[in-house]
């Protein structure tokens, strides 16, 4: 029996008094790739933000259990150290802090938290060089300030590169495909696929089916109006591509 990694039960949450998630249920186990799809405003990014611990959201009901413990109680940094990783839809530029310094600090925090020794400069460099190859990143990348002046595609590759270095248990990819041309999409997707293992999981949040041609999900969920209104296999994504979201939203309203 596969161990569950994330169990969301009847989650109700919102921002500034406005309820966005209205009783969401989701269960992700080891080795699984889940896709959450949905129209704009359905609550996809809210879900990603709440899982990563972004400020400003209020949870009014339900629970989020990660690895058997309450995720909501953890600060964003503890979540990260416990293996939750969010690939940002809009990665932040941090001029003046070079990528090596940033990533080494992050990795060593994660390692310390998990009772592992900190890596020295040489060990770190060996590790990151190997991971850089997965994302086809240039040599000077490590010296550059984090995301500063990067193109949209470089920023997304950097997100997946960080994921490769930090090796999370649960990776949440928030609209990773947005702003990518087809070549960049292939590189990023191939990177994500290489990081898939039997003991970790990926939650892919996307508006479009396109990404799922490259990152093939085991389960597809449709999020509408703050709830998961339909779940199925990867064929559900193809059906959405063909028919759009309207029919599901309508059926949902009829049954509601």
């Amino acid at each position: 029996m596969k161990q569950p990694i994330l169990e969301i039960t009847n989650l109700r949450a919102g921002v500034e008094g406005k309820e966005i998630l209205k009783g969401l249920n989701l269960r992700i186990s080891e080795g699984e790739v889940h896709a959450v799809m949905g129209p704009n405003g359905s609550g996809k990014s809210t879900l990603a933000s709440i899982l990563a611990g972004r400020d400003g959201y209020t949870i009014t009901d339900g629970q989020i259990v990660y690895g058997g413990v309450d995720l909501v109680e953890m600060s964003p940094e503890v979540r990260a150290r416990e293996g939750v990783f969010l690939a940002f839809q809009y990665p932040v530029e941090i001029p003046g802090v070079n990528t090596t310094y940033f990533l080494k600090a992050a990795l060593n925090e994660v390692r310390k938290h998990n009772g592992l020794s900190e890596l020295d400069a040489m060990e770190f460099l060996t590790l990151v060089k190997e991971k850089m190859k997965i994302l086809h990143l240039p040599e000077d990348f490590l010296k550059r300030p984090v995301n500063a002046g990067f193109s949209g595609g470089e920023k997304k590759r950097n997100e997946i590169f960080q994921m490769a270095v930090l090796d999370p248990k649960l990776a949440i990819l928030d609209e990773t495909d947005s702003g990518l041309d087809i070549d960049a999409l292939k590189v990023v997707s191939a990177g994500v696929n290489k990081l898939k293992r039997a003991d970790n999981a990926q939650l892919v949040i996307t508006h479009y089916q396109r990404l799922l041609d490259y990152i093939v999900p085991d389960f597809v969920h449709v999020l509408s109006n703050g709830r998961i209104v339909r779940s199925g296999g990867k064929e559900l994504a193809l059906e959405l591509e063909e028919r759009g979201y309207d029919w599901i939203v309508k059926e949902d309203l009829q049954t509601a």
Partner: peptide, 19 residues
């Protein structure tokens, strides 16, 4: 962003000021 990578709040703030 820095916290979501495991860097503590204090270290993140310090890093951004140095940055």
């Amino acid at each position: 962003y820095l916290r979501s990578r495991g860097i503590g709040k204090e270290t993140a703030r310090r890093m951004l000021i140095h940055s």
